[in-house]
Design a binder for these strands. Structure first.
Lengths: 123, 123
DNA sequence: GTCGTTGCAAAGCGTTTGCAGCCTA
DNA sequence: TAGGCTGCAAACGCTTTGCAACGAC
């Protein structure tokens, strides 16, 4: 139940700190395996899950994409997905009128917005 | 390669017409099984895939969820995902200010908006 | 020494594919 | 009748779980 500071967990947290972008489980495995050989996939999933529950990581799920995770502590934001380079960019602000789209009787508690196109570099 | 009008395919197309909302493969199976007992999951996937390629269905991918499909030819719209029953509902309209979120130099060509909460039935 | 944590492998889950028999055209 | 279509089951890729050994405290 407690939170032991193991070699594996240190390597996994480190992978996220050094990445500076959302990582998928396989990417975490690749990065953390450098420090910890024989690192198992189960450990990745278990550790990532606990880090999400602990509020240290935030899940970043894009439509049709495998789930990724990024460091918590950022302001509410959305993402811009460049079709050309595949990079994910953070956006500031939030669109208006989301509440007005909600049908009568429905209870809105969260939303997800993803913009697609080309980033400044690829355009 | 041709497109034979089988009992199974008729039932599957019918399921989408009657649903009025995006359906996942399992939901299609449940609906179409009423007309065609012993309907296999493989048939669902194969038929849905061909219907998408034929432009009769549109894939609706939302973050962290299995893909769903809806009838093609509808106006631009977004979706509401009920956390309680897991159903996906169609919304009318589109939020304002999406373009303003786009950083300078970026080229916006599409967007995805998903609202989360509880539907009228579950609330 | 305890007991949470790990690695391995097996089990799940949703989706795809192989194959023999079925059925539409 | 021919060849696409279907159902069954095995195969797959990704994620979760069971379990005995390991190691942080």
């Amino acid at each position: 139940m407690s939170d032991r500071d193991t070699h594996q967990r240190r390597a996994i947290r480190n992978a996220f700190r050094e990445a500076g972008r959302p990582l998928s489980p396989v990417e975490v495995l690749a990065a953390a395996s450098v420090d910890v050989p024989n690192l198992g996939t189960a450990t990745i999933y278990r550790t990532v899950k606990s880090l999400v529950e602990a509020g240290w990581l935030i899940p970043v799920a894009l439509p049709g994409e495998p789930p990724r995770y990024e460091l918590a502590g950022k302001d509410h934001h959305h993402h811009f997905h460049c079709r050309a380079c595949g990079k994910l960019f953070e956006l500031e602000g939030c669109p208006e009128g989301l509440r007005q789209l909600t049908p009568p009787g429905f209870h809105l508690d969260a939303h997800e917005v993803v913009l697609y196109g080309q980033c400044a570099e690829c355009a």
